[in-house]
């Protein structure tokens, strides 16, 4: 909880363009990104933001029936009709070891919310990934990507970190090559021993940038205190080509339209920066993987 005095202090600071840790309102914190640390998963990524946020994403691929879908969700109903695409199933969990500013119920709500946003964003052309390529046998078998997000530490702006980590993990994921053969209209498939195929369209996966509105200004990459000062936030998902992939308004307050549009544009631009920084990170990671250097992991 935050006291009125502190709130005042923070908003005045932001109006003046200074934040608690010396950053400008548009600056994000330094982060570390590493991929491939969970070797049991087909792809993984860890994003660690200086200041406490730590997110670990693991992707496991499995093979499943195209028909099997949880029909309670309307969006998934729509997906169900497409018999020639693969699926992405996301889930966000919070590790109990995360230093929690919020209470239990709020954590659960947060997790559910993030899960839904992730699912929505990725399971469609806006998600960047070529879902058609994930289909193995049209009408019956497809790849399913299970993306599991684990929040290890909460230090503000978790949503951005999650998206970054998801993008990194998708970049890191490898699928095994599948050989499909048919006889008289019946199909069957075999998988190769090694995972060698990258996911098509991974460079088009968007990142999220969340702007928190504090009085008349907004900050990007907020810390927990700043988040508590804020009344409303806007998360913008933008991809490499500058296209908007999703917008989500959070928290309880209301926003003026002009401020909203302002925030969105800011986030878009910021998003581009983030993506190019990430891409160079990821390229480094790729080189490291080819050189067969072990990741540092948690060491």
């Amino acid at each position: 909880m935050i006291s009125k005095v502190e709130k005042d202090y923070i908003s005045k600071g932001i109006a003046a363009g200074i934040r608690n840790d010396g950053r400008g309102p548009n600056e994000s914190r330094q982060l570390e990104l590493e991929t491939g640390i969970i070797n049991q998963a087909s792809g993984s990524c860890r994003v660690s933001v200086r200041g406490g946020t730590e997110v670990l994403v693991g992707i496991k691929v499995s093979v499943g029936d195209i028909q099997e879908l949880d029909t309670r969700d309307e969006e998934e109903e729509a997906m169900k009709n497409r018999a020639d695409v693969g699926r992405i199933v996301c889930s966000v969990e919070c590790s109990p070891s995360a230093k929690i500013v919020l209470d239990k119920r709020q954590i659960e709500e947060m997790c559910i919310l993030y899960t839904q946003i992730l699912n929505r964003t990725l399971n469609g052309p806006q998600g960047g990934l070529d879902l058609y390529k994930l289909c193995i046998i049209p009408g019956s078998v497809c790849w399913i990507l299970n993306i599991d997000v684990l929040i290890l530490n909460y230090g503000g702006s978790v949503f951005d970190a999650i998206f970054m980590a998801v993008r990194g993990a998708i970049h890191n994921t490898r699928l095994a090559k599948v050989k499909v053969e048919s006889t008289d209209g019946a199909f069957d498939f075999e998988v190769e021993d090694d995972e060698t195929e990258v996911l098509e369209g991974r460079e088009n996966v968007p990142v999220a940038v969340t702007a928190f509105q504090i009085d008349k200004n907004h900050v990007i990459d907020a810390m927990p205190l700043e988040e508590q000062c804020s009344d409303s936030s806007v998360s913008v998902m933008v991809n490499k080509h500058g296209k908007l992939c999703g917008v989500q308004k959070g928290l309880k307050g209301s926003l003026e339209t002009s401020l909203l549009i302002n925030m969105i544009q800011h986030c878009q631009n910021k998003g581009q920066e983030v993506i190019s920084a990430m891409d160079s990170f990821l390229a480094q990671e790729e080189r490291r993987i080819i050189d067969l250097v072990e990741p540092v992991g948690f060491r």
């Binding site: 670990l56 590790s95 599991d148």
Partner: peptide, 9 residues
């Protein structure tokens, strides 16, 4: 509290 990540096994 024991927590097993979904990608853990």
């Amino acid at each position: 509290e024991f927590h097993l990540a979904s990608f853990a096994s």
